[in-house]
Design a protein around this nucleic acid. Sequence first.
DNA 1: CACCAGGCAAGTA
DNA 2: TACTTGCATGGT
Length: 223
Amino acid sequence: MGRGNHFLDIYNSLLKHFGPQHWWPGETPFEVIIGAILTQNTSWDNVEKAIASLKASGKFTPEGLFRLPAENLAQLIRSSGYFNIKAKRLKNFLSFLFDDYEGDIDRMLKEDGHILRHKLLNVNGIGPETADSILLYAAEHPIFVIDAYTKRIFSRHGYIDADATYHQMQELFMKCLPQDTCLFNEYHALIVRTGKELCRTNPHCDSCPVEYDLHKKGKNAIK
DNA sequence: CACCAGGCAAGTA
DNA sequence: TACTTGCATGGT
């Protein structure tokens, strides 16, 4: 392993250990975007159920959801949790989509990345992680997505400060890695996989590049 | 039973 | 500015 770039070494170790994670499990950019909003602080299993019921409603298009009353939308996405507030967030996004791009996802995705990021952050209900997930996984721009696992794992391993901001962490990852959409896609997915896998089912994972007790959370967590 | 999940915004001091 | 709280279902 090269001594110079731990971030790339860790990526290669995780990829070798877990294999490709095949994110994002959405069939279209539209589905990826809806999933990105629904999965906020929520398990992907619950989001899949919500997306399935949206599809079953026959209204899983920008126009269909835009016309649907928020109360009806909330019931369809019930399984994803926070359904009232997420129905509003979906509506806020759809209003933006119709206001700025005539409801055309492809047109939105052709927008300049920096401008689109700024606009997405201006939508109530879309924060940095959701915006970057849309940019990376739907628009396929090379931008690194930071999440709670990233912060927990890398700060406890001493690679980043415990009080680092989202922007600081993103800058560091992007400074240390090649600007490659596929790599950023896979790395974020591998970090999430690592957090899930080692926090729960596999506490004695010897061959894993990151150690179990360094990223536990809850009352037994290390600081 | 407690705890967590691919966050974000609003409220409080 | 710096914490805290609400949002809510479903799995382990």
